Every structure is written in structure tokens, then in C-alpha cells.
Amino acid sequence: MKIFVGYDAREDDAYRVCVQSILRHATGPVSVHPLKQDVLRELGLYTRSADVGAATAFSLTRFLTPYLAAADDYCVFVDCDFLFTRSVTDVLDRLEPNKAVHVVQHDYVPRQQMKMDGRTQSTYPRKNWSSFILFDGRHPKVKALTPSVVNTESPAYLHRFSWLEDDEIGKLDLTWNFLVGEYDAPSTPPASIHYTNGGPWFENCQDVDFADLWTNEYAMLRP
């Protein structure tokens, strides 16, 4: 399985911990790739004007994932502020048939007005659906998600999955995109923990739910 992790230089520690947690828990063959905007620009695959209002450098480049994977198989995009406690390949269990993508279909209003890194918390339809996406590279709608589409369509069109019919979007269990601070913490760690409002790599986020798991993973990073 090819996995593309969004990279933002401002959150390098988060990226490295995310990648390590994927590889450390993998029980099947996986390959992990950084999704770096500057590299995609050098390759001519991402040509949009700079979006100074984007929350991350990979806000829209994530939709290039299936094009980059270039395979008639499943591939994954995930934000860098995730921590995995199970093999990501387990997400393939019990999928809905004939879906272009599978996502956790959050339906919530953010509990906080500000993220812990000082950024304003925005609210919009299908918020956080695109932070973990399982793409089926065999689906024609996924094959049609070309660089031309990613470079010309609006952010809302891409993030709200307007390029798909609703019945082409499969549902994943909440455990695959558990939003720290937005849901009450379960007694057992979710498979995929998303520190969406800020994680322990920020000084003022040391006490968020499951901070200890991230800190322990960070301590295992190679120098």
C-alpha cells in the first residue's frame, strides 16, 4: 500500500512521528512518501498560486495522491498530525464495495474557536473528511482526479468531494480519524489519532488526550 503523508516544514516533528508510527505498526507491505509542495511544483504537477490562507502546505496537494500512486489499487493520504496505533493496512477490512474513496464522515461543530497553534478554527461542510482518505485507484472518478483538476478546481470543490456522487463515498469507522479534543477520549486508543487542534509538538498542547502516546513515539525517533 502506498501512503502519502502531508509535509509542512512547520510541523516536521509531527511528520516524522506519523511516518514512524505507520512503519512501526505495519503488518503488511507499505511504502510511505512525503507530499512536499515544493517538489510537486518543481515537477510541474502543482501550479496553483500560493494560498497564504491555507492551513498547511498540503491543503490541496493531497488530491494528487492517486495520480502519484499510479496504481490500480488502494492508496492513502493522511495529514501529518496523525499517530497510528495499529497497522494502516487494517483499514482495508470490511470496506463498502464500489466506492471511489472511504473517509470518516465527521458531522460535528468544533468545540473550540481557536486551534492551539493560534490559528482560527473554521467550520465548513464535511470538515476533516479529507484529512484521511483511502482512494481506490481502480475507480474511474479517482482516475479522473488529474493534476489539471487539482490545479483548477476550487478548494471547496475538492475538499467537499464534489467531484463524486454521495453514494461513491464510503464510510470508515471513527477509529481511523479520531479527532482529539472534538470527541470524548475512549478507554482504548483509536487506530489513528488525529491531533487536529494541535499536538504535543506545540508547547501549549502537552496535555491533550493521548499526548503521552505521541511523546513516547517521538522518544523512539532515530537521531
Rank of each mutant, 00 (worst) to 15 (best):
V17D: 06
F135G: 08
Y74K: 03
E165Y: 07
L45M: 09
Y74N: 03
T175Q: 12
L23N: 12
A14D: 13
E153L: 09
K36L: 07
Q112G: 02
T85M: 04
K171V: 13
D93N: 12
L172K: 01
V78H: 01
V103L: 10
V19H: 02
A69Q: 02
A70H: 14
F178N: 06
A219C: 03
L221E: 02
D117P: 09
A191Q: 08
V208W: 00
S49P: 14
G181Y: 04
N216W: 05
P34E: 00
D73K: 05
E168G: 09
T65C: 09
V101N: 02
A156D: 14
N128K: 14
T61Y: 02
F82D: 00
L221G: 09
A9N: 12
D13G: 06
T152C: 10
V142N: 01
Q113D: 15
D173I: 07
D38A: 13
L40G: 12
L174M: 13
H106F: 12
A54H: 09
E217K: 00
P200L: 11
V91A: 10
G53I: 05
D173S: 14
F58Y: 15
T175P: 01
H159D: 08
T123L: 15
L92T: 08
L172S: 04
A70K: 15
A156P: 00
Y157I: 02
S192P: 10
Y195H: 11
P66W: 08
A69S: 14
L134G: 03
W129H: 10
D207T: 15
T65S: 11
L134K: 02
P189F: 04
V103P: 12
G6S: 02
W201H: 06
D8Y: 05
T146W: 11
L40M: 15
D81A: 07
E153N: 04
R48M: 07
